[in-house]
Computed example of a mutant assay.
Amino acid sequence: MKKLLMGMLTSVLLVGVLAACGTSEKEGSTGNGAGNGEKKVLKMGTSADYPPFEFIETAKSDEIQGFDVDLAKAIGKKLGYEIQVQDIDFNGLVPALENGQVDLVLSGMTPTAERKKTVDFSDTYYTAKHMIVTNKDSKIETPEDLKGKTVGVQLASIQDGLATDFVKKDHINMKIEKRNRIPELVQEMNAGRFDAAIIEDTVAKGYLDDNKELAGHVIESGAEDAGSAIAFQKGSELTEKFNAELKKMQENGELEKLVVKWFGDGETK
């Protein structure tokens, strides 16, 4: 009888342990946003050097914040996803998406024809212009003024391509220098190694506020506006889902509220 009772007790305990293990695995499972438990996680890639889209206020915390982060988390919440943000150099974002390191990219990224070859994009959620940033006494205001100058751009950015077009298509003979992060461009200008940099106007304004010796001039012609969209893996079902929620936010004013919060003018450009 004792052996029978011990055998029954062991069986009950074994079933309980297996059930507990199964529950733990189920609740903790994630990957490509397709967790089997209640908690679904999406990994978002961004280059956190692009205020107010994404940045880190190092004096306060290591948390990545900004317009793109708020937008991703707002849509993620509506769809039942937790958004985990990873800081990656801008030129590494598309490769990170392609190899599955992240599920989506929000980083003020423009959906160019070249990028569309390897990743899918949502509808555009914000549009800005390009700006030439230079020292106030440089007398550089237009692309033509960049002839013979050393001009900085962020590697793999839309401004990188724009500067190349100025050289090849418009025959503006200038030296293009590329850096991974926007602050590096500003540092190079402050050190006198760059004559100018081409940066998105919304982002440039923040650096101009902090660097009173610099001036900015919007490029009015010869360049398409820089539209920002969310990037996904080719064929991802997330593209359609995020587009649907993005459209709702545009219609009900939620997107406008985020614009006001981070850009302050209450108008998308």
Rank of each mutant, 00 (worst) to 15 (best):
D62Y: 04
K39E: 13
V119W: 12
I219G: 06
Q187V: 03
D201I: 04
K269W: 01
G28I: 02
N36C: 06
D145Y: 02
N190H: 01
A72W: 01
D195F: 10
A19W: 11
S157P: 09
T112F: 10
K149M: 11
I219C: 04
I132V: 14
E63P: 00
K39D: 12
L146C: 09
M189N: 08
L246I: 04
E245N: 05
G37S: 12
S138G: 12
V218T: 15
S228H: 11
A226G: 05
G253M: 02
K40Y: 04
K261D: 06
S221G: 08
K168M: 09
E224L: 12
E144Q: 14
L4N: 07
K60R: 10
P111C: 13
L5Y: 08
M6Y: 11
G152I: 12
L246Y: 03
Y207K: 11
L79M: 09
P52K: 03
E254T: 09
K73L: 02
E38L: 15
I88Q: 03
E251T: 07
A20P: 01
K257V: 00
M249P: 07
K77D: 15
V260K: 13
D70P: 02
G35Q: 08
I64Q: 05
E177M: 11
A229I: 09
E141W: 01
I88H: 02
E141L: 06
S122T: 14
H171P: 00
S107Q: 04
T134R: 08
S11I: 15
A204F: 09
G80R: 11
K169F: 06
F53S: 05
T164Y: 10
V17N: 09
A113I: 13
V133S: 10
D68M: 04
F90Y: 15
G253I: 01
V133R: 10
S24W: 05
I83Y: 05
I132Q: 10
M1E: 10
V218F: 06
V85T: 13
V260C: 00
L208Q: 11
A19Y: 14
V69T: 09
V167K: 13
E245T: 07
I88D: 03
G45M: 08
E256K: 11
Q187Y: 00
D103T: 10
G222Q: 05
E267D: 04
T202K: 09
E27V: 14
A34F: 06
I64P: 04
Q154H: 00
D137K: 12
